[in-house]
């Protein structure tokens, strides 16, 4: 009996002692945290995607409060989040555009020439090291490193070509960072649809024709027709988005029409016309696998 009492008493004394020490430590070692950091942290979406250039939302919040970074860098939260942060910090917000990825390649499997049956690891990073996977050494490889890099299910390989789903994309830039051929760039979307060059091939027209059915041949038709918006450099049109004015697109539309390979495209969120066109199409509600006819694609390597 006395042992039980003694054990209980010792535990109690130990508990009180530890509680006192920890309480004292909590007070003595208390670190002042700027309440604005907590407020900013709460206003951020918490996706921790790294789109702002910082490791996570918490680090970005610290940088914003310290003034090291403007409050409109969060691509997930977008404009409303930037406004909220600006309100917390009491600063005014400059006009900013949402940055979204653009794939500078437009060739599907059937358009690419000189493609071989590549048996190595199914990733763009490794396939890019091997010569002869496909004729074009600039364009999309189609193994989907960008798809696995995306945390938001916003990029998919459609018939061998990476395609961005702008409804889901938040603009974190993970796909642009992972692409070994650097054909994904982040473009400021000044309107719902932006004109982009969907080719990355820097070779001369004849060489492009040898490897791709749809590649840019560097004919400079766009340079002649757009009044200086396009400038052909290394056989590819270069765009100056600072000069892009969504309300005055006539010269650009003319250049787009004149492009013989149709490599200048307006891409982005679906327009009202697109939505109208697909309005009557019916999507299946739910597709259930039929185990009698469906073949399991898992390859057994045991």
């Amino acid at each position: 009996m006395s042992i039980i009492l003694l054990a209980g008493a010792i535990m109690l004394v130990l508990a009180i002692l530890m509680a006192w020490v920890l309480g004292w430590a909590n007070k003595t070692f208390h670190v002042e945290v700027d309440p604005r950091v907590e407020a900013v942290n709460a206003a951020l979406p918490g996706a921790n995607c790294g789109g702002c250039g910082y490791v996570g939302c918490a680090e970005y919040a610290e940088a914003v409060v310290a003034g090291a970074c403007p409050p409109d860098k969060c691509t997930v939260g977008g404009e409303s989040c930037a406004k909220e942060l600006a309100g917390i910090l009491g600063v005014s917000l400059e006009q900013s555009w949402p940055f979204r990825p653009v794939i500078h390649c437009g060739a599907h499997y059937s358009d690419r020439l000189g493609r071989t049956d590549y048996k190595g690891e199914q990733s763009c990073t490794t396939a890019n090291l091997v010569a002869g996977v496909q004729g074009c050494t600039y364009g999309c490889l189609g193994f989907g490193d960008c798809v696995s890099a995306c945390d938001f299910d916003a990029i998919h390989i459609v018939d061998g070509l990476a395609t961005v789903d702008y409804e889901k994309c938040v603009g974190c830039g993970a796909c642009a960072r992972i692409c070994p051929r650097n054909i994904i760039t982040m473009v400021p979307f000044k309107s719902r649809q932006m004109v982009v060059v969907t080719c990355s091939n820097n070779d001369m027209g004849k060489d492009v024709k040898a490897v791709c059915k749809v590649g840019c041949i560097g004919c400079k038709a766009c340079e002649r027709n757009s009044g200086g918006f396009f400038r052909v450099d290394k056989n590819l049109p270069v765009l100056d988005y600072d000069k892009y004015d969504p309300d005055n697109l006539d010269s650009i539309r003319l250049a787009v029409d004149k492009c013989p390979m149709k490599r200048l495209l307006f891409i982005g969120w679906p327009t009202e016309k697109d939505l109208e066109a697909t309005k009557d199409m019916e999507a299946p509600d739910l597709v259930e696998a039929d185990f009698k006819t469906t073949v399991d694609q898992t390859d057994w390597q045991g």
Binding site: S2, I3, L6, A7, I10, M11, L14, A15, M18, V21, L22, A25, N26, T28, F29, H30, V31
Partner: peptide
């Protein structure tokens, strides 16, 4: 009198609180 029956609970107690303490100290 042998109180070594208390060893597990006391050690877990000590480890948890010392981790807490170290965390606060290092943070400061």
């Amino acid at each position: 009198v042998d109180l070594s029956i208390l060893n597990y609970i006391v050690y877990i107690f000590v480890i948890a609180s010392s981790v807490q303490f170290v965390e606060m100290y290092v943070r400061k």
